[in-house]
């Protein structure tokens, strides 16, 4: 653990990222305290510029406080990011484990399936799914999970392929452990680091994806989110720039910090690779 922290904190960007991420988390937790009531409440006069009418970041076309929207939106963005990542991990890890551990036809089938999902344009598919299953927090999480599991499956498969022939796995097999307990008990824990690194990046892209969906009007109509704020500001950007600018900054900071933290995690978990850290295809 100590090593982990030392390696992590050696990456200055990662530390900055962690601080920003914590700030966003705190904002999300404190939203009901900072801005009691609903972020949808018409608190001031419509189109009040930042600083006027007691509104730190201005108001929107109905007089709703943009700052309150951003604070409450943090909850939704982080929630969607986290839950859809967990769901994508569940799909990706299971399929990757099956392919990597069983090999053969199972591997072939799973990989063809994964390839198919990597081929089709993911954003278009996400739009289609949310539109058809009507926009709600559940359909958004579902759509994001459906389009973001393939990289997980690939990474997990690769790990499993290399781990399954290791001695400790073979030892367990000789001992007659069931396949499931070998996969969960022996292999998975050893494959965890790349999954952890990948997760932080997946949360980031899930937040981006959610904001893009909301921007297109496919957000949950009962949930205030950052993408919604930007989308509702688009048509009046000539009148009220603040409606689009601030929520965008919020998304940017959050996604950036998650990426930085991801790199820090990667450095900390794979110190060997730290130097040549490169692109994330």
């Amino acid at each position: 653990m100590k090593d982990f922290w030392r390696n992590f904190s050696r990456n200055r960007g990662a530390v900055v990222g962690l601080v920003v991420l914590l700030a966003v988390l705190i904002l999300a937790v404190l939203a009901p305290v900072l801005y009691p009531g609903s972020p949808w409440d018409m608190a001031g006069m419509p189109f009040a510029p930042p600083g006027e009418d007691g509104m730190l970041l201005g108001t929107d076309s109905l007089g709703r406080d943009v700052a309150a929207g951003i604070a409450h939106g943090a909850r939704v963005s982080l929630l969607v990011g986290a839950v859809s990542t967990v769901a994508a991990l569940a799909i990706g890890v299971s399929l990757g484990a099956i392919a990597g551990y069983l090999g053969g036809i199972a591997d072939d089938l799973v990989m063809r399936f994964t390839e198919f999902f990597q081929t089709i344009p993911s954003f278009v598919l996400a739009i289609l799914l949310v539109a058809i299953f009507t926009p709600s927090i559940a359909s958004i999480v579902f759509a994001i999970a459906v389009v973001s599991w393939p990289p997980v499956a690939r990474v997990v498969r690769a790990e499993f392929l290399s781990l399954r022939s290791r001695e400790f796995v073979q030892a367990s097999e000789v001992l007659g452990k069931s396949r499931l307990s070998i996969v969960i008990g022996d292999i998975l824990p050893n494959a965890l680091s790349p999954i952890v690194v990948l997760s932080s990046l997946m949360v980031a892209s899930a937040i981006l994806l959610e904001s893009a969906l909301s921007f297109l009007g496919l957000g949950d109509p009962n949930m205030m989110s950052w993408g919604f704020l930007i989308g509702s500001g688009r048509s009046v950007i000539r009148m009220a720039w603040w409606m689009s600018v601030f929520p965008g900054v919020a998304i940017f900071l959050t996604v950036l910090s998650l990426n930085l933290v991801g790199e820090g995690l990667s450095d900390a978990l794979n110190p060997r690779l730290a130097r040549n850290r490169g692109g994330k295809p």
Binding site: S38, W40, D41, M42, S61, L62, G217, P221, S232, S235
Partner: peptide
Amino acid sequence: EVFTRLGEFLRQSFR
């Protein structure tokens, strides 16, 4: 869009 805003407005009015 304007009908979406209307829905949001009615929700706050009823609340």
